[in-house]
Design a binder for these strands. Structure first.
Lengths: 135, 135
DNA sequence: CAAATATACAACCGGATGGTTGTACGTTAT
DNA sequence: ATAACGTACAACCATCCGGTTGTATATTTG
């Protein structure tokens, strides 16, 4: 019920997730906040960069859905979100399955699409253009 | 002689992997080449961008270790590399484990580090600066 | 209230990215 | 040998990214 971001913009969402994970500082933030809620200040103190920089990293993680920020007084408690992590996990698992030659239909589960592809293709397909008949 | 990229520069390698995966076109290339070898031209024909652009995407994937290029006459056959994919998978699995509260020691397996951290910290730790005692 | 703290946000900058076009080179085919 | 094909690579451009500093706002604390 609550989720409305599962139908058309999967690609963009996945882009953000992986891009957010493509930075050592951000991975470290995820790592930490998965086990405990930490304020942005506390996080910032752990890295050799400005507070604003860490703030930006948290923001990137947040807009990717990898962390949530809950306010507690004047502080913002950052908490890792395992659900989003699991989404990336599923995608990679899917690639693994695909490689093994058995795709099944778990891609439908992954993308939330109810058997959208009549081609039997995997979730996503070509991002922009499916296949020009003949140029 | 063989591999020298397993000890100190893990972070950078992971960066490249996730960054490479943070693009829908590149994910699609990985997806395709996991099940069959395809030439760069054939790949390029599938997307609405120039040949050179696709070439660059393949290059990014290759330098991340996500695909290999084998030459066959004048063509280059692109083949997905499930090993690298599995590396990313392991990292995410590790986060999942961490979230569940049981870290075990599989991080040593992941990073190849023989119990490098006396702190019991997870693989990687803060990328640049561990923890300033108190500035 | 005032001062200190924690955060938010805008502006700016150098470098990386993703795309283009053009050219050169090796390989097949005629 | 020449032409066509597949690829590589350089140059260029707009945009994004990761970092900085500076300023503003809300919340505690004295």
């Amino acid at each position: 019920m609550g989720d409305d971001a599962t139908l058309p913009l999967v690609d963009d969402e996945v882009d953000r997730i992986f891009r957010a994970l493509a930075d050592a500082t951000r991975r470290d933030i995820v790592r930490r906040t998965l086990t405990e809620e930490i304020t942005v200040s506390a996080l910032a103190a752990a890295y050799e960069m400005s507070f604003a920089a860490v703030q930006k990293h948290v923001s990137v993680l947040e807009s990717a859905g990898l962390v949530n920020k809950n306010r507690h007084g004047r502080e913002r408690l950052v908490r890792g979100n395992p659900d989003t992590l699991r989404k990336a996990q599923l995608l990679l698992d899917q690639y693994e399955e695909l490689w093994r030659g058995r795709i099944d239909r778990l891609d439908a589960l992954l993308t939330g699409e109810p058997a959208g592809d009549p081609t039997g293709d995997l979730a996503g397909g070509p991002p922009a253009d499916p296949a020009p008949g003949s140029p």
